[in-house]
């Protein structure tokens, strides 16, 4: 199979760029710890309200962990509990969420918090809130007729 000289150059350049790109993504994921949310823990979706930490939705201070707070959300059609929450500026927070019924999204506009809530699974993401303001939480996975009404709010305050 004959490959034109220019095509060889083009493919070598392209493949080299690809390798550099994948290395950057890989180093970011495995060395710097920027993994996409991939919690492996499961939960019975019908008993969510009675199980820790979901029996206490909202911002909870924790001790002796890598993070200062746990921000717990429970989603169900078509709302989030809590409907609004205040977070102190600069807090290192583990967001922990799950759903009681169908699949929901959990996206915080203007931040990198964006994860799927699959029934039976817990979703987690570790983040630091370093900007003050109001951040809209919304459902970005279709969940039924009221999908676009499903919101909550994070207020980051000093």
């Amino acid at each position: 199979m004959h490959i034109h000289k220019y095509e060889k150059i083009w493919l070598i350049f392209g493949t080299a760029t690809l390798l550099v790109f994948l290395s950057v993504v890989g180093v970011s994921a495995f060395y710097l710890g920027n993994q996409p949310p991939s919690c492996m823990a499961t939960v019975d979706p019908e008993k969510v309200d009675t199980l820790a930490p979901f029996n206490k939705p909202g911002l909870n201070k924790v001790e002796g962990k890598e993070w200062d707070y746990e921000l717990v959300f429970v989603a169900s059609a078509f709302n989030y509990t809590p409907g609004e929450v205040e977070v102190p500026l600069g807090a290192k927070v583990k967001v922990i969420a799950t759903t009681k019924d169908v699949i929901h999204g959990f996206s915080v506009a203007g931040t990198n918090i964006n994860m799927m809530l699959t029934p039976g699974y817990i979703s987690e993401y570790l983040t630091t809130f370093d900007k003050t303001g109001e951040f809209l939480i919304l459902c970005n996975e279709y969940c039924g007729a009221g999908h676009h009404m499903m919101t909550s709010k994070i207020k980051v305050v000093e």
């Binding site: 109001e134 809209l136 279709y142 676009h148 009404m149 919101t151």
Partner: peptide
């Protein structure tokens, strides 16, 4: 890029400034 979701009907999201 500003965070607007796909697959969603028109919504003002409770009057949120971002929306």
């Amino acid at each position: 890029l500003l965070g607007a979701p796909r697959r969603s009907s028109f919504s003002e999201y409770g009057g949120a400034a971002q929306a």
